[in-house]
Design a protein around this nucleic acid. Sequence first.
DNA 1: ATCAGAATTG
Length: 557
Amino acid sequence: MLVVSCFKTKGFLRIKPFNIQTPLLFCSSTTFPAISKESNPVSFLQPNRTTLFRQLKQRPTLSQLKETHAQIITQAFSQDISFVGSLIRSYTSSNDLGYARVLFNRYPFTSPPTLLWNLMIQAYSKTLNSQESLHLFRRMLSLDGPIVPVPDSYTFTFVITSCSHQPSAVEGQNTHGRVIKSGFESDLFVGNSLVNMYSAFMKMEDAQKVFNEMPQRDVFTWTSLVSGYAKSGEMGAASELFARMPERNDVSWAAMIAGFVGGAKYNEALKYFHDMLFDAKMKPNEAVLVSVLSACAHLGALDQGKWIHVYIDKTGVPQSSNISTALIDMYAKCGRIDCANQVFSGISKRDVLTWTSMISGLSIHGLGKVALRMFSQMLGEGIRPNNITLLGVLNGCSHSGLIDEGCKIFYSMESLWGIAPTIEHYGCLVDLLGRAGQLERAFKIARDMPMNPDIVIWRALLSACRIHGNASLGEQIIDYISKMDPIGHGGGHVLLSNLYSSLGQWERVDRMRKLMSEIRSDYNPGCSWIENVDRDTSEVGGSFEKGKCRRWIYSQH
DNA sequence: ATCAGAATTG
């Protein structure tokens, strides 16, 4: 039996369920929202079964849904199984898992049918808490009694999606076994989620095997496989598949372009973007644009970046936070901090990402003081920094010699924002102190920090030694490195070699080069990209037609 | 009711 209190205030009907120990549909002290004639004109007076069902079917907003829920309780329909099901469905589609879960747990008389298990499992698979989705699935399997819910192809599709969000592939592999036992192997959706799951873990032999054995495939199947190869850096395999795909859409293109960017094949990324534009039916989506802007940023390809900016404005792509972030980053890395700032100023609602890209941009331009000012402005607007924001700020301090400020931020980041320094933050600190000439202190920090120093740290330290002409500390550091890990660290030896040569001690350079070849270091010769700006063809808003593209000079030194 | 994609530091 249900108890609810109804009372009228200022013309509104308020309904509040009481908390009693009988198996309530709803056991919560929440006050339901007021029901007004305006917000619910039809059902205000006498809602019956049919009108209540109609209200639930019409994709209500969360507050409308709660009103309807309150009415169901007052009409004593709350033990009605079909109402419970509809309510759960509505709450999951409104992404209110709390209410949905309460209803699900208190499902009256029997265990919920498969459909409701599926809805709950699917809802959790979309959240960060996808573990819960697997818990539910395990509970579903462990039930026994006369009527038990049986997993169907929907269940497996959602469970496998949750598996692809787990830290390891074991859950996914187990579920795959269960799929085979239950005979859902040949289902298109189950197959697609399996290909996607194996691709997410970059287990491409397995993904390919599932793909090969599927009786039918669609764009999702192909795109999932392509993006798996792209993520694994196997762009040869990816482009081969991409060429063979019977049908492509914007996500397929995005997978290819992002794959090239991830593998530092920026020119290839731009080439695919060009091909995509050539296909009149294809419209680059946000993911494509963000990836291509990143490619421009890495190449220093300002003109192409500008072209994409104009394209975004002209074609009315909604200027999202991601797009703004990518534009700011592109302009900053291409040396146009003024344009970056222009984009930043034009944003109506700034978030951590846009702030971070602006601050980092200022930092790499040596504008540490401005970066710091922006940082405090950001804090003033109540936006919490993340670890990358702090990296940007620390980087700005080290490039502008703001030692006290940098140290202060480093040593208070954990207490102020709950962000524990990672090895990258330590790298900034060592760099900061090293550049400032506090070499001993920097070395001590590298030695005593909670994690093993990596090559980036040693490089910062050794180049600081070089700048400040302190070869003996450099040697001391190298000794320390070789004691810790005698094999590897090729980069460190190269740096020591540079350190010596800058000091004119050539006999030692010789010794170091020998040592380097002995330890077979994975050192790659430095290289740089220089954009060959051809003014005739690079006007903003120009096209990417053949022959009009940039040429590149590749120089090695 | 169903499955695919992106960015921020050196």
